[in-house]
C-alpha cells in the first residue's frame, strides 16, 4: 500500500529525515517511536503533504501513485488521513460544516454524488458513536475552546467520517489523561479493518497498550534504526531510548 524508499526531507535547510525505508500493507498497524526530535512528526507531516517540509530525496509510493507529486487535498482524496498532534481551531466554521465540505469534496474527486443534508446527518450520528462525541460539540466552531481530549476525539471522529485507507496518528496520545486516551484508542480500534492501515506515531508505549501494533519502528536521528514486534515497545518503555542511542553510536 505504502512504500517509502530512502526518504530525505529538510525544513529551513536543516535535514531532518535522512533516508527512511518503510513498507506498509493493508490492515497493518505500524508504530513509530523515538526520542524527541528524531523526526517522527516530520515523517507524518511529509506524508500528509505539509509544505514547509522540503523533500530532498527518495520516494513515496501510495497504491502505485507517486505520493510526493500530490497536493494535500489529493492525498486526502486518495485515502490518506493525518490526525494532527495539535488540531487547529477554526472559529466560524462548525465541525459539521467543515466535514460536510470535506466529505463532499472527496466524493466529488472520486466521481461520487455529494451527500445531501439528511444523508450526511445520518452518517454523522452513526460515526459520532464511535468516539462518543456529542452532537452539541459538532455544532460548535471547529476545535474552538475544545479540551485536549475533545480535540483528539474530534480527530478520530473525522477519521471515521472520511474512512481513509491509511491513517497517520501523530502523537494522538499527547496531553491525554488515561480515560480520554482509552476513548480515543477504542475509537481507532473500531476503525481497524483488513483494508485499512494505521501508522501510530508516539513517544510513549502507553498508547500501544490499547492500539496494539503489528510492527514497531524506532526512529532516531532521521533514520529507522530498529524494527520489531510489539515487544520492542515494552523494551523501550522499560529501558528508555539510551540503549538505542548507544547502539547507533557503536555502529
Amino acid at each position: 500500500m505504502l512504500t517509502i524508499t530512502d526518504l530525505q526531507a529538510s525544513v529551513d535547510d536543516k535535514e531532518i529525515l535522512k533516508g527512511i525505508n518503510l513498507e506498509i500493507k493493508p490492515g497493518e498497524v505500524h508504530a513509530i517511536m523515538g526520542p524527541n526530535g528524531s523526526g517522527k512528526s516530520t515523517l507524518a507531516s511529509v506524508l500528509a503533504g505539509r509544505e514547509e517540509y522540503e523533500v530532498t530525496g527518495g520516494s513515496v509510493e501510495f497504491e502505485g501513485q507517486d505520493l510526493l507529486e500530490m497536493s494535500p487535498e489529493e492525498r486526502a482524496a486518495a485515502g490518506i488521513f493525518l490526525a494532527f498532534q495539535y488540531p487547529v481551531e477554526i472559529p466560524g466554521v462548525t465541525t459539521i460544516n467543515f466535514l460536510k465540505t470535506a466529505l463532499n469534496e472527496i466524493r466529488k474527486s472520486r466521481g461520487e454524488a455529494p451527500l445531501d443534508a439528511a444523508q450526511f446527518l445520518k452518517l454523522m450520528r452513526e460515526k459520532a458513536k464511535i468516539v462518543n462525541i456529542d452532537d452539541a460539540l459538532l455544532k460548535r466552531s471547529l476545535n474552538e475552546g475544545f479540551s485536549g481530549g475533545e480535540k483528539k476525539r474530534n480527530e478520530i471522529f473525522q477519521m471515521a467520517m472520511l474512512e481513509p485507507k491509511l491513517a497517520i496518528l501523530d502523537e494522538t496520545d499527547s496531553g491525554l489523561d488515561i480515560d480520554a486516551l482509552r476513548i480515543v484508542a477504542e475509537g481507532v480500534n473500531k476503525l481497524r479493518s483488513p483494508e485499512r492501515a494505521v501508522i501510530v506515531v508516539t513517544h510513549y508505549q502507553r498508547l500501544l497498550d490499547y492500539i496494539v501494533p503489528d510492527y514497531v519502528h524506532v526512529l532516531y536521528k532521521g533514520r529507522i534504526v530498529k524494527s520489531g514486534s510489539k515487544e520492542l515497545a515494552f523494551e523501550l518503555e522499560e529501558k528508555g531510548y539510551d540503549w538505542i542511542k548507544a547502539e547507533v553510536a557503536a555502529l
Partner: peptide, 29 residues
C-alpha cells in the same frame, strides 16, 4: 492562518475552497 489552510486541505478541501471558507468564517460573527 496557513496552519488552518493546511488542516482543511489535509481533509480533502481544495486550497481555494479552504481559503474562501476561512475568509467567510472570519466574517461569520
Amino acid at each position: 492562518n496557513d496552519e488552518a489552510i493546511f488542516y482543511m486541505r489535509s481533509r480533502g478541501i481544495p486550497k481555494a475552497e479552504a481559503v474562501t471558507l476561512l475568509m467567510y468564517a472570519f466574517c461569520e460573527d
